[in-house]
C-alpha cells in the first residue's frame, strides 16, 4: 500500500504541477482539500478524475463519490487498490 500511495503522490504532483513538492512532503492522511489541503480547485479535481481513469481504469461519476475518495492519499490508495481495473 505504501508503494501505491507514493506512486499516487508522484503522479498527482506531476499532473497538478505542484512545483517544489515531493511525495515525502505530503502526509498520507492529511486532507487533500480544504484549508490544510494542497490548495486545489475545481480544475484540479478534473485532473484527478482523469488520472484515476487513465492510470487505474477507475471512473468516478458523482461529487459524492469524489468526496468519499479524495479525502487523503491513504484513502485514494485504498480505493484504487480495491477498484482498479488496470
Amino acid at each position: 500500500m505504501e508503494e501505491l500511495i507514493k506512486e499516487l503522490k508522484t503522479k498527482v504532483i506531476d499532473v497538478l504541477n505542484l512545483e517544489g513538492m515531493t511525495p515525502e512532503d505530503i502526509d498520507d492522511n492529511a486532507p487533500i482539500f480544504g484549508d490544510q489541503g494542497l490548495g486545489l480547485d475545481s480544475i484540479d479535481v478534473l485532473e484527478l478524475l482523469i488520472l484515476l481513469e487513465k492510470n487505474y481504469g477507475i471512473r468516478l461519476t458523482s461529487p459524492m463519490e469524489g468526496k468519499e475518495v479524495f479525502q487523503s492519499f491513504a484513502v485514494i490508495a485504498r480505493y484504487v487498490a480495491e477498484h482498479r481495473t488496470k
Binding site: 480547485d41 475545481s42 480544475i43 478534473l46 482523469i50 471512473r59 461519476t61 461529487p63 469524489g66
Partner: peptide, 29 residues
Amino acid sequence: MSHIFAMNAALADGEILSVAGDRCFGSEK
C-alpha cells in the same frame, strides 16, 4: 463541483461539451 464530473463524463462517453471560452469563472487558473 457536480459540473466537473458531468463535463468529464460527457467527453468520456463521446459526447459534445459546450463551454464559453472568453470568460474566467469557477477557477483562478
